[in-house]
Computed example of a mutant assay.
Amino acid sequence: MVTGWFAGEGDDFRLLGTRCSACTSVFFPREDAFCRNPGCPGGELVEMPLSPRGRVWSYTDSRYRPPSPYVTDPELSWEPYTLIAVELESERIVVLGQAAPGITVADLTVGMEVVVVPGVLNEDTETTWTTWHWRPTGVAA
């Protein structure tokens, strides 16, 4: 798990971002040092849960084994996965992430509503690395 990027479980699962108190810009991944808005005089950065829903902005599939630092076992066969860029409902920022297992590009359309859900990036006998996935609304987990 990437500390500070998401929190909660089940229906309470949320990505965590930050909002600048001066210009109200929202950032994900979170920003803890300074406001990234070049026109902002600077303000306090406050952690905030992001919208759990958004609309598909774009999508594609990944058919190659990504390079390090992505965790992948070279002894196992490679499974392609779907990437989705989602415009969040309230914040109107675009966040990239993997689709939930079983969701392919054939299941998606631009503008489709999706929800963020917890996911597994990798696991071994000692550790499960968690992440987030996007799942179309109305599709069972």
Rank of each mutant, 00 (worst) to 15 (best):
T109G: 10
R65L: 13
F28C: 00
S21C: 01
E9Y: 06
E123A: 14
V110N: 01
E91M: 09
P101H: 09
T125W: 07
V117S: 05
W134H: 02
P118F: 05
R30C: 02
H133V: 12
I103L: 10
V95D: 00
T125I: 04
Y64F: 15
G42D: 05
M112V: 04
D32M: 07
G42S: 10
I84M: 05
E31V: 12
L45A: 01
I84G: 02
L121Q: 03
A106C: 03
G102S: 12
Y81H: 03
A140Y: 01
D73L: 08
V94F: 12
T131P: 10
P80A: 13
C20I: 06
G10V: 02
D12H: 02
M1D: 11
V114Y: 08
V56L: 04
L16Y: 03
W129A: 11
S51H: 01
T109F: 04
W78N: 07
A33M: 08
V116F: 02
G138R: 04
E79V: 15
E91A: 07
V116M: 00
D107W: 14
T72D: 14
G119P: 08
L76H: 05
C20G: 08
L121A: 09
Y81C: 00
E123F: 11
R14V: 04
V115R: 03
V115H: 02
D124Q: 04
A99S: 14
P67Y: 05
W129P: 04
L96G: 08
E79H: 13
Y81W: 13
L76V: 10
E113K: 08
T3M: 11
N37L: 04
D107I: 07
S25M: 13
G43P: 04
L45C: 02
V2A: 13
R30V: 03
T104Q: 10
Y64T: 14
V105A: 03
W129F: 15
T3H: 12
G138W: 05
P136T: 00
E9R: 04
L96W: 12
R135Y: 09
E89W: 06
E91Q: 11
P80F: 11
T18K: 01
D12Q: 13
N37E: 09
T109S: 15
R135G: 03
R14S: 06
A22E: 14
C23I: 14
V46F: 08
Q98I: 04
A22V: 06
V116T: 09
C20K: 06
E89V: 07
Y70H: 15
R14C: 09
V139A: 08
T125K: 15
E113Y: 06
S77H: 02
V105S: 02
I84V: 15
V116D: 00
P52A: 01
S77E: 15
C23W: 12
C23A: 13
D12W: 00
A99V: 07
E87A: 05
G4T: 11
I84Q: 03
I93H: 02
L83E: 00
P49T: 06
F27D: 11
N122L: 10
M112E: 10
V46L: 14
S68H: 12
V71D: 11
V114D: 06
R92W: 11
V114T: 06
A22K: 14
